[in-house]
Nucleic acid binder design. Structure first.
Lengths: 195, 195
DNA sequence: GGGAACTTACCGACCGGTAAGTAAGCTTGA
DNA sequence: TCAAGCTTACTTACCGGTCGGTAAGTTCCC
């Protein structure tokens, strides 16, 4: 199949806009992702961006949706890791650490930068985020509790505990977590650090 | 002592600038904290801000230093909570949860927004932050390990684990964590969730 | 007089967004 | 077959608005 035509296919430009926008977003958040800079980085004029996305917020939401879809796929894969909750949690953490550092940094930053979009957009996004990511983890832990594999906490608190433990490794763009972190976090979550 | 003079004492204006800057920062980060809006909120002209602070970055750093001093005081108080590491960790978490939600939200946001200041300023701040907060927690945990109260992890990893677990409760400005969260986090950190 | 604590009025840079024009390809009717 | 007309994918040039920051003047107290 012939992919290269003399003229770039339009989907290429759209894809490159998203890539450059994500790169700039990682450098300095929503405000660093200026429409002028994105256009320059892609090599098109600024109104070309507005041809592909109605405004800056729409472009940002497209980035967010890509990101949440990736995160959702990680949870879905963890669910397949077996009926045991511990194995599922370990697979979830392994999947998160297997994302690129930039992907993790993007997920971290995205939550903070939602203040810059309209309330309706934010609400829509948070619903998607909950449905595809947080809610799925919560369900996974709830089932583990029903099977008696966890104790002493409700599913929502357990979810935030688990994500919180992983959170420092969502840190800096470009920083890879140490290799044994998946085992460490799994062990602490289930067994603690006390002697 | 007479606090009210016909003319406001200059330290009052300086204090009010810091207060309004912090409030605006919490609404939408560094960029939402515009010098014009701060001036209007305080009820002075914009150049009055530049009389008290050389530039926006200096003002922001003053906010950060206030915040890190508060956080450092919490760690220092936790250290007094006894020779036992578990009691110290519990006191640390209790101290964090006893801060106002806005103070916690500020600490959370500050880390993300350091990208907007110059590299030298960031480096200076990170040194202070480490010296007064992270490093002190790390020392506290290292001493606990030396006494055999913790196992299976190095002090730096344990520090980030502990802070990560608390992190979800640094979340939204205005949200107070549930009352039992200190016990929950302490128990998970030392004993885990496994049956 | 002189300094502390401001004010008014302004600067250039950058922001998101748009109006209007255009080159290239695709569709369709004679 | 081939020109007319429409659509896609842009371009140049510009808009009003906000940003951080400053020069120069003013008021008030010691």
């Amino acid at each position: 199949m012939d992919e290269s035509t003399p003229r770039d296919r339009p989907t290429d430009v759209r894809r490159r806009i998203l890539d450059e926008a994500a790169r700039l977003f990682l450098v300095g958040g929503y405000h660093a992702m200026s429409m002028r800079e994105i256009a320059e980085a892609v090599g098109v004029s600024k109104p070309a961006l507005y041809y592909h996305f109605t405004d800056k917020e729409t472009l940002f939401v497209a980035l967010l949706n890509d990101s949440v879809a990736q995160a959702g796929a990680v949870v879905e894969a963890a669910r397949q890791a077996g009926p045991g909750c511990r194995a599922q949690v370990r697979a979830l953490l392994a999947g998160i650490m297997a994302l690129s550092p930039d992907q993790r940094a993007f997920i971290r930053a995205a939550g903070q930068e939602m203040v810059h979009v309209s309330p309706e957009t934010r609400r829509d996004f948070e619903n998607t985020y909950y449905r595809l990511f947080i809610g799925e983890i919560e369900a996974l832990l709830r089932e583990g509790m029903a099977r008696g594999e966890l104790r002493g906490v409700n599913p929502a608190q357990a979810t935030w505990l688990l994500l919180g433990m992983a959170y420092p490794y969502f840190g800096i763009s470009g920083y890879a977590p140490p290799g044994d972190v998946v085992d460490l976090l799994t062990d602490v979550f289930f067994d603690g650090l006390g002697v």
